[in-house]
């Protein structure tokens, strides 16, 4: 079992105040679990691997573009289509499907990346703490590994506005 303090707050402002107090005490390892992206969420300094998302969507989009090009060019050449003397490979006409598949693959990869990275991110918060959240309750989790007694007392003081603090 993880050594941590789980503080339950009845409102987002109370959690935000506690997080500010923790920051002032140089405690930057706190995590928040909430049912909406309240301002407190943005004060934890744990943004997750979000920078990867844009790159993953870009790679997905380029994959879609490549698939569309391969599909259109390769199959048009191999199927002996009747094109009335026009070029078999027509980039202007093929551009539409390329665009559609680029966007489709970018969207699919963005969604897949969100799901996979979220699964990795939430594993750093205990299941017990995640289960405490409701629409009107936020949870602040502070790891206590390697904390001195004084530091733990300071953390408890910062969390004093919570409805409940449990180890």
């Amino acid at each position: 079992m993880r050594e941590e303090l789980v503080a339950v707050f009845a409102d987002p402002d109370g959690a935000a105040r506690a997080l500010r107090a923790l920051h002032e005490d140089q405690v930057t390892t706190a995590r928040v679990v909430s049912s909406a992206p309240f301002p407190a969420v943005h004060q934890t300094g744990r943004p997750g691997p979000w920078r990867a998302l844009g790159w993953i969507a870009l790679v997905g989009g380029l994959t879609g573009l490549s698939c569309a090009m391969a599909l259109e060019v390769a199959t048009s050449r191999s199927m002996d289509l009747i094109v009335g003397g026009k070029p078999i490979v027509s980039w202007t006409a093929f551009g539409v499907v390329m665009f559609e598949l680029t966007m489709l693959f970018a969207g699919l990869s963005n969604f897949a990346a969100l799901v996979i990275l979220s699964a990795f991110t939430r594993r750093t918060v205990s299941r017990r703490a995640r289960g405490e959240v409701t629409t009107d309750r936020l949870v602040v989790i502070v790891p206590l590994e390697g904390c001195s007694a004084d530091r733990e007392a300071a953390i408890r003081r910062a969390l004093s506005g919570a409805v409940e603090v449990r180890p």
Binding site: R31, V32, V33, S34, S35, A36, P37, V41, H42, T44, R46, P47, G48, P49, W50, L53, L114, V115, L117, S118, A119, T121, R122, T124, V125, R130, V133
Partner: peptide, 12 residues
């Protein structure tokens, strides 16, 4: 899909 509202998930 297991979404539980952690700060990291919200950020993502």
């Amino acid at each position: 899909l297991g979404f539980s509202g952690t700060d990291g998930e919200w950020c993502l």
